[in-house]
Design a protein around this nucleic acid. Structure first.
Lengths: 339, 339
DNA sequence: TCATGCTCTGAAAGCGCTGTCAAACACTCG
DNA sequence: CGAGTGTTTGACAGCGCTTTCAGAGCATGA
């Protein structure tokens, strides 16, 4: 049923070699013959068979994108950015997600798709030994998003979270007069949490604020759990005049809502800031002061990097650092942008 | 470099035919030989070449998923559901998005990938002539999500929105005493808007409430525009004692926030309900009364349908109808669940 | 006139796999 | 003991494509 290169050749009265040549724009094919072949292609609606081509070229023009989970806006933005750039560069995207509680088999399975994809971009939420082992089995161009896997050769796209956290805390301390800080993050093994917490502690120290370990909370990045925590804690926090740093907007929203439900007046009695600058950030009341993380750029850069390595496999490992940016809204207690 | 079937054959001292046979679990291979081959496979870490296989079998085990846009939770939930089910059934997912303002070329491009995927699931936000033409070019198993394209043979997954809208309006009218209704939807050409508006008008009529055409607003499903509209309208709406039906949660959130900013007391002065039951619905204050739409089931069902048709291409066109469900929270003005 | 070089084209060899077909072998039965 | 049956295996022909490699056709200069 589907029209093959042979059909085109017959139709244009040439051999399949010639058709293949005009298809690949290589070797100069005689002007007249080329036109003939091209019109035959158009006429028959011919499309080269991807498999036959892949079999010969060892190239599928498919890129794999593996995300920790498909929940939430954060990841869908990455997909969006990656998808758009892939399209532009003539690639397609194969997406899979690895559940947080996955035993590694999911990642394995995707990596097993190596036969199919030309390269893989992976975002891992936790770098354990198994993940590392799996990743080091990847023989293809590999891009790691928002992290680094030591001992495994890969390009990477990272967010400069330190800068964002630093700017945020500086704003909180210098402009909003924060004197006590609470950190609400994900699990201690989560790479983002690790980095954000480290940056948080560093920036707090720099600002002359010391953090008590009882003021560091490890949740799961979700609204509900943050809301629950908030219900227990907001009064105490307000009394102690702390400012809350949540490692993502959703948790910040949960805490804000818990505080409002508790009758607190925000931001006055409890400044809360978030991270990521997802759409939720503009939907809370007070609206969230947060750090904008260029999610879709991340996806796009990953694709970009993959394609570059595909073209030049020998280039040294590259790392793209994306800047995060402080977005001041109302939840931190100060309305004007810091000078 | 990659190990081929020949390597396995050599290693196990059999012919490639035998290896192929144990791979495909067909024809009975002698127990002992099979074990030998299997251990050779494991030892060499052999994985069949997807392209060679695809070339022979005309099957890629890849499913295409085309969404109108990758923004927002709605779509990411569909992806999640589809991805999970695809994995279970041994398929992979290739995702692409068609921007709302796309000229059709994106859809075209994806459909052109037919050579690659075994089937396509498409969600279209507007069914115009071009879309229809493109879709009727699809020679593969086709599933249309949340819509129907007349004249094109396809299976479909639809949400029974009528039931949801009816239940919602009944609740609003009977239990919350709504007497005037406002509809805030997407553009008039949008399939969801068309359906929700029709169901809305029908259910309103049934409840004895007439809708003035000036009370029907066509926006774009986004928080910001709804917020803007709200800023202009909430006082008037409150004065007229209307209840607002927004065609998705984000717009409902925008209107609620505008109302609160305007100093209105909610839900008392302005009941607002949403649709979809995304995570936002639990984040507004008052929390949204809305209609739960099983988004991830939609994705899963689409994959399911695709696989079924792949197995039996002759079965009659199938339509899976997913139920939507009324979720009563506070924004409608009544806290208790209706009896 | 013939060797030489150039441009363009076709034949054919795979890429790694599946599936058909027939061969090899071991039995069983008359 | 030969024919018939069943089980297990290998040889080989493609699937649709790219890519050598060689040959055909033609013009050029000695």
């Amino acid at each position: 049923m589907p029209v093959s290169i042979q059909d085109v050749a017959d139709h244009a009265n040439v051999s399949i070699s010639t058709v293949s040549r005009v298809l690949n724009r290589r070797n100069i094919v005689n002007e007249a013959t080329r036109k003939r072949v091209e019109s035959a292609i158009k006429e028959l609606g011919y499309r080269p068979n991807v498999f036959a081509r892949g079999l010969m070229l060892r190239r599928s023009h498919i890129l794999g994108l593996v995300l920790p989970d498909l929940h939430g806006e954060f990841y869908s933005e990455i997909i969006r950015g990656a998808n758009a750039r892939a399209r532009e560069l003539g690639y397609r995207l194969m997406i899979s997600s690895v559940a947080a509680d996955d035993d590694g088999s999911e990642l394995m399975a995707t990596v097993a798709d190596q036969a199919l994809v030309d390269g893989v971009a992976v975002m891992v939420s936790e770098v354990d030994a198994r993940t590392k082992a799996t990743l080091s089995d990847v023989k293809l161009p590999l891009v790691v998003l928002d992290g680094e896997v030591k001992g495994v050769r890969h390009d990477s796209v990272v967010i400069d979270q330190r800068m964002g956290v630093a700017a945020l805390l500086k704003h909180l301390i210098d402009n909003c007069g924060a004197q006590r800080l609470v950190f609400v993050g994900g699990q201690p093994t989560n790479v983002d949490t690790i980095e954000r917490l480290a940056a948080f502690q560093e920036a707090a120290a720099e600002g002359g604020v010391s953090i008590e370990s009882s003021d560091v909370f490890h949740l799961d990045y979700r609204y509900d759990t943050a809301f629950d925590l908030g219900q227990k804690k907001v009064r105490e926090w307000a009394r102690r005049r702390v400012s809350v740093f949540a490692a993502n907007d959703e948790m910040a929203a949960g805490i804000i809502d818990a505080a409002i439900d508790a009758g607190l007046s925000l931001p006055g009695e409890l400044p809360v800031v978030g991270f990521d600058d997802t759409r939720i950030a503009a939907m809370t009341r007070p609206r969230l002061t947060t750090v904008h993380v260029p999610m879709s750029s991340m996806g796009a850069s990953a694709v970009e990097l993959l394609c570059q390595r595909l073209e030049d496999p020998t280039r040294p490992a590259t790392k793209i650092t994306l800047q995060s940016e402080l977005i001041v809204r109302e939840s931190c207690g100060v309305h004007a942008n810091p000078s």
